[in-house]
Write a protein that binds this DNA or RNA. Structure first.
Lengths: 161, 161
DNA sequence: GTTATTGCAAATGATTTGCACAAGG
DNA sequence: CCTTGTGCAAATCATTTGCAATAAC
């Protein structure tokens, strides 16, 4: 990943500034999804100077360079996914009970793309499959470990304003 | 459709007001996608009194009642799709050249859902597949009738702010 | 030295909301 | 009547942007 990022900076002729370094570090340190605000908080812990503007501007650069992808999890803010570099065709399942997001791959999606190209005369560039689902454990057992964990951690469930 | 709407109003105990009637009429008159602002314009032509607030409130009711579905076409405003009542499992392809949106169905998507339920232990409630694609005609022939039509009509191409 | 980059604060723009008035049942 | 629904204007809130100062190269 480090290599990909370095290459990106070189290719784009970007400068290695301090805020940029810190942001890149924060973005690719883990494989979790995050929002601009969450990234801002994380970055702030390392450097209290970095502004939201720089966060947003850097995110835009990374998205443009295909190092990061914007995904829509159904709420009012954009979520960023750093995992497309390693898993270019993965999809998302969002649990409506606990808000947990599960990434999965399914080869059949590729087959659909091929069929679309043939049938509709378009060349597929990118496909986004989002599945909203309910935790079966919660239905059958009346309890869902993820939901409990979510509540305990105090993390807010995703929802539209 | 008329029946579905009436049923919805009755079931919800909603009142039949003039602005509501006009909005419902405008929403289900065609099967085209639209934004809140486009609906507002359309409604305004029939009744110059109706406010944006009422447009948004009515849209929220319809979405809640599953008569309308919000979709994300990649720009900054919500698009509404009135076709899910008749085609509950359709998907969208967005052409990055001309912005045209093509609806399509593909039985394989159902198979994926079934597989997810089995593999991941979630019950699929709703699936959203969006494909971004390029018009092959434009690539091969250098021209795309849709693109030309879009430009002639003066309709803005969809894009992030 | 130049040109890219940053932080700040103000602007944007879609959507939501408080409130007093109007209208449906 | 009594409650739901409406228009208006103001409020929200994530994201963007203009600008002067600062830092890469």
């Amino acid at each position: 990943m480090r290599a990909r990022v370095d290459d990106f900076i070189r290719r784009k002729g970007l400068r290695r500034t301090k805020p940029r370094q810190i942001i890149l570090e924060a973005v690719f340190a883990r494989d979790e999804h995050f929002t601009a605000e969450e990234l801002y908080d994380r970055v702030r812990r390392t450097d209290a100077e970095t502004s939201r503007a720089t966060i947003y501007r850097t995110l835009a650069l990374l998205v443009e360079g295909d190092l990061l992808r914007e995904i829509d999890l159904g709420d009012d803010q954009t979520t960023y996914d750093p995992n497309f570099v390693n898993k270019p065709t993965h999809n998302h399942l969002v649990c409506i009970d606990c808000g947990r997001v599960v990434e999965f791959e399914d080869t059949e999606v590729e087959a659909i793309n091929a069929r679309i190209t043939r049938r509709l005369g378009f060349k597929v560039l990118r496909q986004t499959l989002k599945i909203e689902a309910a935790c079966e454990q919660l239905r059958t057992n009346g309890r869902c470990p993820n939901l409990i964990a979510t509540r305990l951690s105090g993390k807010r469930l995703r929802r539209k304003r």
